[in-house]
C-alpha cells in the first residue's frame, strides 16, 4: 500500500505547522495528497445547559480554523501537494476515524499533548486503539522527563532511523510491509525483540540460551526481509519491560521513530496488564508508528 494520501489532524498547537512541513518529505515516497482536519469538540459549542447550540461561536471557531488551514494549504500546494481542508464539529475521536475512513487515507497523523509525564492524552490512545489504518503519533517538539529532569526533543526526519519492535505476530508482519513504503527515506533500521521478564520459563542457563537462539533466528528472518530491499539493518534481543527496553534502546541508537504492529488485546487484559502500544504512547518522546 503506497502512502499517497495522509490525514493530518491538528488542534493548532504551536508546532503543528512545523510538524506538517516535516511530513512533506513523504513526497519522495509517493505522497500526493494531504487532508488537513481540525475537529471542534462538540461540547465547545453545543449542549449549552438549558440553552442549546452556540451558532455564532461555532461559526467563529469554524471560520478561524478554516482561515488558518487555508494558509497551510497554500504552502502545501506550492510544494506540489493536492490539499483538502476540513473543519468539523463533533466528538474528536469518532470524527477523526470517520474522516480517515471516508477519505480512504493511507496514514493518519495525530499529535500528542505536551506534558512532563503523560506524553499522550487519552484521546490519542483511543484513536490508536480503534483506527483501521496506520497511525503516526508525531509532534516535532516534545518535552519529556527522565529522572525528574525535563528535556526537549526535536523530532526531525522521522523516517531515517526507525526502530522496528516486533513480536513476530501477524500485525508485526504487516508493519514490515508498511515500513517498506518508506524505504527510500530509511538510512538504517533497528529490529528489536524484547523478551518480557517473567513470561518465559528458563530455569537453567541452557534453557535461556535455547530461547535466545530461537528468538534470534526469528529476528534474523525479519532482518532478511528488510535486507532483501537493500536496507541497512541491525538486530537486538533484550530482556525486561518491553516498552522501557524499546525506548531505552531507541534513545541509545538515536532512533527517529518506533514502529510496531498493533496487537489487539481483550478489554480485561488491557486493563489488567496494559498493552505495549499504550505503554509506548505514555512513555515515548520518539514518534510512534502503529500499524493495525
Amino acid at each position: 500500500m503506497a502512502i499517497e494520501r495522509i490525514l493530518f489532524t491538528t488542534k493548532f498547537r504551536e508546532d503543528d505547522y512545523q510538524t506538517l512541513l516535516e511530513l512533506t518529505e513523504l513526497q519522495k515516497v509517493g505522497l500526493k495528497e494531504i487532508i488537513l482536519l481540525h475537529v471542534i469538540p462538540r461540547e465547545e459549542v453545543a449542549y449549552v445547559p438549558f440553552g442549546g447550540y452556540l451558532k455564532e461561536r461555532a461559526l467563529e471557531l469554524s471560520e478561524g480554523a478554516r482561515l488558518r488551514l487555508k494558509e497551510w494549504e497554500e504552502e502545501l500546494q506550492i510544494r506540489g501537494f493536492k490539499v483538502k481542508v476540513m473543519v468539523e464539529i463533533g466528538e474528536p475521536v469518532a470524527k477523526i476515524l470517520q474522516v480517515s475512513e471516508e477519505e480512504k487515507a493511507n496514514l493518519l497523523v495525530i499529535g500528542r499533548k505536551r506534558s512532563t509525564y503523560h506524553l499522550i492524552p487519552e484521546i490519542s490512545e483511543r484513536i490508536v486503539s480503534r483506527s483501521n489504518i496506520p497511525v503516526l503519533v508525531y509532534r516535532k517538539i516534545v518535552h519529556f522527563e527522565i529522572n525528574g529532569e525535563i528535556f526537549q526533543r526535536e523530532n526531525t526526519k522521522v523516517f531515517t532511523k526507525p526502530l522496528f519492535a516486533t513480536d513476530f505476530s501477524a500485525p508485526s508482519k504487516r508493519a514490515i510491509n508498511f515500513l517498506l513504503n518508506f524505504k527510500d527515506l530509511i538510512e538504517k533500521i533497528f529490529i528489536v525483540h524484547i523478551l518480557k521478564e517473567g513470561t518465559f520459563e528458563a530455569s537453567t542457563e541452557e534453557a535461556l540460551n535455547r530461547i535466545e537462539e530461537e528468538k534470534k533466528a526469528k529476528l534474523c528472518q525479519v532482518l532478511k526481509d528488510f535486507q532483501a530491499h537493500n536496507l541497512k539493518c541491525s538486530i537486538f534481543l533484550g530482556i525486561g519491560d518491553p516498552s522501557k527496553e524499546i525506548i531505552a534502546y531507541a534513545r541509545e541508537k538515536e532512533s527517529t521513530l518506533i514502529a510496531i504492529g498493533k496487537t489487539g488485546k481483550g478489554l480485561l487484559e488491557s486493563i489488567l496488564v496494559g498493552s505495549l502500544t499504550k505503554s509506548l504512547l505514555h512513555r515515548s518522546e520518539i514518534p510512534l508508528l502503529i500499524v493495525p
Binding site: A46, Y47, V48, P49, F50, G51, G52, A58, I89
Partner: peptide, 13 residues
C-alpha cells in the same frame, strides 16, 4: 425540561 435543550442543540447542529 432538560431534554428540550438537548434536542434543540442537536437540531441546530
Amino acid at each position: 425540561n432538560a431534554p428540550n435543550f438537548i434536542v434543540r442543540s442537536i437540531a441546530e447542529e
